[in-house]
Design a binder for these strands. Structure first.
Length: 580
RNA sequence: CGGGCUGUAGCGCAGUUUGGCUAGCGCGCUUGGUUCGGGACCAAGAGGUCGAGGGUUCAAAUCCCUCCAGCCCGACCA
């Protein structure tokens, strides 16, 4: 491809709404353009890179026997209403209706944010026998989600390309084998994309299911947090992460009975520490939530934070912090002076759920349910009527892994892939059943597996760039090689460049030929910006002694080669980088 | 949805406080010339509903009202 025939609108400056390097470089390199918030056009160069990622995904899906399908992006709303999670899903869904009133749709349509409902209802009709199992279907398709706040270019967009796959198995162990296959395929995919990533145990959230893993690319602007030990023996998303809490220092005295004391104006953990000398770890934090329409108290140690994902994991589907009025009505005090001493589940409060860190603790301080007063010397076992113990806390950096005792670190990351073992949540809802060898009907055991393809593309750029621009891993680069003709007015140099382009193309090497009549500096800057892995310069040295200058974008010395030697050299390098 | 901010040429911005002549600068674009190895220089050009609508005024990018869009922080997030 000749540069003058292509459209590669590079920019010297980045648009001001692009904050992070990868977003700026995709725009500056002329790979994408923003149409509207969270909605992007792929220009030719960007599309080529995207297709490379897609190709890797396809090859690895095909390799493990997944079958490619294409499910509709437009879906009947009614389908979702029959499914198990419409209420949760509809918050991010777009409706798709004819704008003209005269042209009414037969039923309401939505734009699919994902495809569990479609695939399961389809398979329910087509798969009936154990002989047809296992099956795994995948597609690469545009998803639509109404992100409240799209940002960072392709990292969080309203319209994005996703690879999603759905496995159907006869039983749990078969489903786990399918899961394992996909897990391994994902490692291949992200390895081939040149990404450094961590695989973390993840929360299943609204998706439901029994377990899942997230493929996370560490990145300061990532939207999720992961906890892991340095040696990789433990890794989990922050929602799921468990850790050993640091023990209390044990200086708070045990009392025979709780003792009330005045704490005027001390409404926070910090204020109680500062004004009354009560260490955060010696306090009980009392949080009031409205859970499935009932008031629930959550108790944590003062220095710990509630992890709401763990509340969901308790089986509580709808919850929110209680309002001031609800709190006052149930406990007779305002937030800041709340406590569970004397609270019996069943009255205004339906249950008292306490974090494991509080078990058997003594000498604790908590609110007295009277504004401006707290109780000290509280013994958890003696004074609190805990109805349920659970792990509620958010792990923090520096705590120890529960199993190995090694310190955990917490970092932000981009979630590029997620695998879920779903179980029968969707197959039961849509009656995706099969008959076993004895003629007995069972629901298929499902798994689902997503890769954010456009997000992966940007994650690659985020991980592979330098001050001058993108440094594509060869496997996903829009082109393998860039010919930079620096003497465009010289007939011999031009003929050499044309010959080289032809020779490389004939060998299946994807080549971009910068044939513009521009000054060398511009070509160097643009070449480095768009990051094609190998650059071949035809310039001064060619005029002097017929040599071409061959260099890798990622660094390393420039080699002077004869025209005839370039194709072999390139082909060998591309083979070694796994690009071809 | 709450808080903060911004909308002026394709991109980056000044001008708005204190209303006033033909709305400016850099990059990019066009033409001509000189250049030619890390984003050259000179000259001449093209390109604007100053986010939209309404109002005040002799006069509005500038003041007032309404709306829209975008960005940042938060809430939310499969």
């Amino acid at each position: 491809m000749r540069w003058t025939h292509a459209l590669i609108p590079t920019l010297r400056e980045a648009p001001q709404d692009a904050e992070i390097a990868s977003h700026q470089l995709l725009l500056r390199g002329g790979l994408i353009r923003k149409l509207s918030g969270g909605i992007y056009t792929f220009l030719p160069l960007g599309l080529r890179a995207l297709r490379k990622v897609e190709r890797i995904v396809r090859e690895e899906m095909d390799r493990v026997g997944a079958l490619e399908v294409l499910l509709p992006a437009m879906q009947p709303r009614e389908l979702w209403e029959r499914g198990p999670r419409f209420d949760a899903a509809k918050r991010v869904m777009f409706a798709a209706q004819p704008l003209s009133r005269e042209r009414r749709a037969v039923g309401d349509l939505v734009l699919g944010p994902t495809h569990e409902e479609v695939i399961t209802s389809t398979i329910a009709d087509e798969v009936r026998s154990w002989r047809q199992l296992p099956k795994n279907f995948y597609q690469i398709q545009t998803k639509f989600r109404d992100e409240l706040r799209p940002r960072f270019g392709l990292l969080r967009a309203k319209e994005f390309l996703m690879k999603d796959a759905y496995s159907f198995d006869a039983n749990d162990s078969a489903a786990e084998a399918s899961y394992r296959k996909m897990y391994d395929a994902y490692r291949e995919i992200f390895d081939r994309c040149g990404l450094k990533y961590r695989i973390v145990e993840a929360d299943t959230g609204v998706m439901g299911g029994s377990f899942s893993h997230e493929f996370a690319v560490p990145c300061a602007v990532g939207e999720s947090e992961i906890a892991f030990t340095e040696d990789g023996s433990y890794a989990a998303s922050i929602e799921k992460a468990r850790s050993r809490f640091a023990p209390r220092d044990g200086r708070a005295p045990r009392l025979d009975t709780p003792e009330k004391f005045a704490t005027p104006g001390a409404l926070t953990i910090e204020a109680l520490t500062k004004n009354h000398g009560v260490a955060a770890a010696d306090q009980i934090k009392t949080l009031v939530y409205l859970c499935d329409a009932k008031l629930v108290l959550f108790l944590l140690r003062g220095d710990h934070a509630l992890n709401e994902a763990k509340v969901v994991a308790l089986g509580i589907s709808e919850f929110r912090a209680a309002t001031e009025a609800e709190i006052a009505g149930a406990l007779g005090a305002r937030a800041g002076s709340l406590g569970a001493v004397g609270i019996r589940a069943g009255g205004g409060i339906s249950s008292v759920i306490a974090d494991e860190a509080l078990r058997d603790q003594e000498g604790m301080t908590t609110g007295a349910n009277e504004d401006g007063f707290h109780l000290r010397g509280v013994s958890v076992a003696r004074d609190l009527a805990v109805t349920r113990w659970a792990d509620l806390r958010t792990a923090v950096s520096g705590e120890l892994d529960a199993a190995s005792g090694k310190p955990i670190k917490i970092e932000r990351a981009i979630e590029v892939g997620h695998v879920f073992k779903l179980g029968v949540k969707y197959s039961e809802a849509f009656k995706a059943n099969y008959l076993d060898a004895h003629g007995k009907e069972h629901p298929c055991v499902m798994g689902c597996y997503g890769i954010g393809v456009t997000r992966t593309l940007q994650a690659i750029v985020e991980q592979h760039h330098d001050k001058d621009g993108i440094v594509w891993p060869a496997a996903v680069a829009p082109y393998h090689a860039l010919i930079q003709l620096l003497e465009a007015k010289n007939a011999e140099a031009t003929a050499c460049a044309e010959k080289l382009e032809e020779t490389l193309a004939a060998r299946g090497i994807e080549v971009l030929f910068d044939d513009r009549d521009e000054r060398p500096g511009i070509k160097f800057k643009d070449g480095d910006l768009i990051g094609i892995p190998f650059q071949i310069r035809i310039g001064k040295k060619f005029l002097q002694n017929g040599k071409l200058e061959f260099r890798a974008r990622g660094g390393g010395a420039t080699e002077d080669l004869d025209l005839v030697d370039v194709p072999d050299r390139l082909a060998a390098l591309l083979r070694s980088t796994g690009a071809r």
